[in-house]
Design a protein around this nucleic acid. Sequence first.
DNA 1: CAGTTTGATCCAAAATTGGTATCGGATCAT
DNA 2: ATGATCCGATACCAATTTTGGATCAAACTG
Lengths: 297, 297
Amino acid sequence: MFELSQVRCFVAVAEELHFGRAAARLNMTQPPLSRQIQILERILGVKLLQRGNRLVRLTPAGQSFLTEARLILKLTESAALLARRVAAGKAGSVNIGFTAASSYSYVPELVAACRQQLPDVELILKEMVSGDQLKRLGAGEIDIGLLRPPIPRSGLQFFRVKAERMIAAVPAGHQLAKSTTISLPDLAAEPFITYAPYEARYFHDLLVELFSRAAVAPVYVQHLAQIHSILAIVQAGVGVALVPEAAEKLQFSGVALRPLADPQQRVAELYFVWRDDNDNPLLPVIAAIARDLAGGA
Amino acid sequence: MFELSQVRCFVAVAEELHFGRAAARLNMTQPPLSRQIQILERILGVKLLQRGNRLVRLTPAGQSFLTEARLILKLTESAALLARRVAAGKAGSVNIGFTAASSYSYVPELVAACRQQLPDVELILKEMVSGDQLKRLGAGEIDIGLLRPPIPRSGLQFFRVKAERMIAAVPAGHQLAKSTTISLPDLAAEPFITYAPYEARYFHDLLVELFSRAAVAPVYVQHLAQIHSILAIVQAGVGVALVPEAAEKLQFSGVALRPLADPQQRVAELYFVWRDDNDNPLLPVIAAIARDLAGGA
DNA sequence: CAGTTTGATCCAAAATTGGTATCGGATCAT
DNA sequence: ATGATCCGATACCAATTTTGGATCAAACTG
C-alpha cells in the first residue's frame, strides 16, 4: 500500500502541475519527488499524471484520485486534531449513569453546563438505580455515576453534589394542604404511599428511619419506585407521600407540596462517583463542572 | 505527519490489544512495532495506548483515533480502487455536449445504455449548439460532442450516429393533414415556419437547400430555434414546418406529422465527436456504446 | 539554432526500517 | 516466597530505502 507522504507529494504536483514548484513547496528537491510519484503510480497500477515536456496534466484517474487524496489528507489532519482534543478533555464521550430522581434536579443542570462548556463532548446518559451504577462503574461500562449512598471505598472517588430535604406531598384539596408546613405525625395519620424497598431502596430506607426516629408508624398503602408515579397516586387522592424537594420541578398540578415541620431531618444525598483509575481525560473536567454546580451542597 | 503504515500498526495493536500478536498479523516482529506506535504517539502528541505489563488497552484518545484510523484506511483503499476503475474506463465522468434536437432522439438512448453498462459513470450533459460544442471540444471542456456537420478535420475524430429524414408538421385540422404524404411544393404554398439562421443554422441551411433543389420558395412567417417551439406554433395554426423524424417522439397533439413525398431528400445528420488526444479512458468505451446504438445509421 | 526549461536517471551519502538480543517489571504457579 | 513466564521497551546492528546533487534528454523560446 501507498503512504501518506506519497499522497502529499501527488497533491502538491497535481495542484502545481509542475514537479519543480511542487518539490519546493514540499521542501525537497525534484528527483525524489518524481520517484515518489512513480512509486505511487506503480502501487496503484495507474498513471496519474500525463507528463508532456512542457506541461504536466492530470489523467482522469489522477483527477479522481486527487479528490480522494484531498479527502484522505483532510481526514488524517482532523483525526490527529480530534485525538489531541480528546486527550485534552475537550472532546470525546463519557458514559454517565444517573438515578431517576436525579433527572429532575441535578442532571439537567449538569448536562446544560457541559453542553455549554464542552460543546464537542458527547454525554451518554443511562438511567439506572444506584446499585447498578456501582456495578457498571466497576466494570468500566460507565465513567461517572450520579447515585445515592452507600458508596463502597473500593477504588472509587466521589463527592456530594446534592442534599435535598424531603417534603410532603398531599392532594391539593386535602385538609393538610391548608397549612404551610406539615408534621410527620400528621402525615403518618393518613394513608401513606412510600418507595419500593428494592428499586428505590435509598428512599425507602430513608423514610423508614425518618418515621422510626419520629416514633410514628404510618399506614403504607402503596410501594412505588418512581417519584412521578408517587405524585400521580397522590394526585388521585389515594394517600400522602414524602418526596425530595426536586419534585417541585415536576409542577404536578393537583398535588400540594409542603415542607416538613420537623426542622433537622435527614437529607437525601446525591453523589458524583468515578473509578479512580479511569483515564478518560474528560473526567476531571466534568468533575470540576459538577463540583461548581453543586456549590455548597 | 504520520504515515499510513503507522496507522495500520496502530489499528492492528488496537484490535489485538497485544503487541506480539499484532506484530505477527503485520508480518513483523514486536520491537519495530513498538517503535512505530511510539513514533505515532509522539507525532500526535498523545498517548494512544495504556500499556500495563499484563494488558494493553486504549486510552480515550486512542479509542477516538481508532475509529478515525479505520476510516482513513478504508478511504485509502477505496481511493485506490476508484482510480483503477477510472483508468479501466469503468468509472469516472464524461462531459457530453448535445444539440437540443438530439435530446429527443438519440441522447436518451445513449444515456440509458451508459447507465446500464457503466453504472458508476457520471454523465455530465450540457445542451449547446454545434458551434459551441466544437469550441468546447477544442478547449477540453467537453469530452464528447453530439452535433451537426460540418466538422473541421483539426484533431477531431467522429462518426455518424443518426441520420433522420425531415417530415412535415401541419396543424391537425389542416387540409394537408388528410393525405399520408406531403410534397414540398404543397408545403411551400402555406405560411412556413423555419429555423433561426444562427441558433439552428444546420436545419436552416438544410431547408434552404431542400427548397432550392425543389425549386420552390416558401413564405417564411417565423424563425425559431427549438423544435418544440416550432411544433407549438404549428399547433397554434400559424403555419406549417419541416422537422426531423425525432419530433414524433414529442407526441405533440394537435400537430399532424407526415413524411415527405419527395423520395430522396437530404437527411439531418448527428455525429459523435471527440478530440483524438483526449485521454479519458471512458471515451473508447462510450464511443463503442454509441456506435452500437447507432447501428447502421 | 543556441538557450532555457522540465522531468527522468544515476550515484553516493544519509536516514529509516526491521531484526536479534536483552532488559525490566509484573503476574502466576508451585 | 520465589522462580518461571509473559510482555512491552530498549540497545544495537544490518539492510533497505530515501535523499539530493549532478547530469541527461527532450522540447519549447526567441
